[in-house]
Amino acid sequence: MASEITYAEVKFKNESNSSGTYSDSATAPKVKPTPHLSKPGRPSLLFTSLMTLFLLLAIAFLAAFIFYFQKYSQLLEEKKAIGDLTHKELNCTKDNPPMDVWSCCPKDWKPFSSHCYYISTDAASGRESEEKCSRMGAHLMVIHSQEEQDFITKTLDPKAAYFIGLSDAGHRQWRWVDQTPYNESATFWHPREPNNNDEQCVVVSHPYSSWGWNDIRCSDEQKSVCQMKRIYL
């Protein structure tokens, strides 16, 4: 009896391995969070910009605060100085109604119109004379009219000369210390004055028959007249 042999055809397929490899390689890029990598950078840049802007604003605010604090301190000092004068060293008169205010000049100052005048009897150079006036809250006298000229010369010593607030800025360009315009039609020069380019300061003097102005060297030492605005209370 002949034996029978049955052959079974067995086929092995590696589809699972190949498909797994393909699946892994195909889906791998989808797993990577590449679209999210650029997002964290944007808030960081915005934060840095805001912090820089805030720092600049803080610096600007600090600078402005220091500036205005210095101005405020200066105003307080000036107000204190005026307050001291008001209570201790002012001579005041009551203005006519309806103003109803007190018009004051410091003690030993002479009132005229809206100003007060102080005659310094100490001789000093032109620059030193202006500095002395400045320390009193004033400046060397400015004269714009015959009335002012006559008022002050009536109280001066005719044997002396007095610095006023007129000087040569260069090339005979005369200017007043308070920056008011120099009006040639309202000047009181002595005859043949001014006469020397090296003489850049001005005094009011009485060398002849009347009072007038004379240019002299600023280094010369003379007396002076200071001027300030009246104080109203």
Score class of each variant (00 low, 15 high):
E128Y: 04
T93V: 13
R217T: 08
F69C: 05
L90M: 10
V202T: 15
S125Y: 03
D108E: 09
M1N: 08
D215E: 11
T86W: 10
P43D: 03
K154A: 14
R230V: 12
V203I: 14
E147R: 05
I216S: 01
H139M: 08
F112H: 15
M99N: 09
P98D: 06
A160G: 01
W213E: 02
N214P: 00
A138L: 07
N196E: 13
E130G: 08
S129Y: 00
L50I: 06
K11H: 08
W174Y: 15
A28E: 06
W109G: 02
W213I: 05
Q70T: 08
T48P: 00
H190P: 04
R127L: 14
H190K: 14
Q173N: 15
K94I: 14
L37I: 11
H139E: 11
D157S: 13
C133D: 00
H190Y: 11
V142T: 15
D150P: 02
E147I: 04
S3G: 07
W213C: 06
Q200S: 11
R230Q: 15
K223P: 01
V101S: 09
T21M: 09
P40S: 05
S23T: 12
K32Q: 03
C116R: 00
P194S: 04
S38Q: 07
Q173E: 13
L140H: 02
Q179L: 14
I66N: 05
C133E: 00
T121I: 05
S3T: 09
L90G: 04
M136G: 13
E78N: 09
P158Q: 00
S210Q: 15
T27C: 03
S3I: 10
P111A: 11
C226Q: 06
Q222C: 04
L76S: 12
W189Y: 14
R192L: 13
L45V: 07
S44L: 08
F54C: 08
S125E: 05
V202Q: 03
T6C: 02
K79P: 00
H139V: 05
A28C: 01
G165W: 04
E15V: 11
H36G: 00
N14R: 06
E130S: 15
Y22I: 04
S103P: 00
W176G: 05
H87M: 09
I164L: 15
D95F: 05
K94N: 09
E131P: 00
C104M: 01
E77Y: 10
G83P: 04
A81Q: 13
N14Q: 10
E89I: 06
T153R: 01
S73C: 06
E193W: 03
L76D: 12
L37G: 00
S145F: 13
K132I: 06
H115D: 03
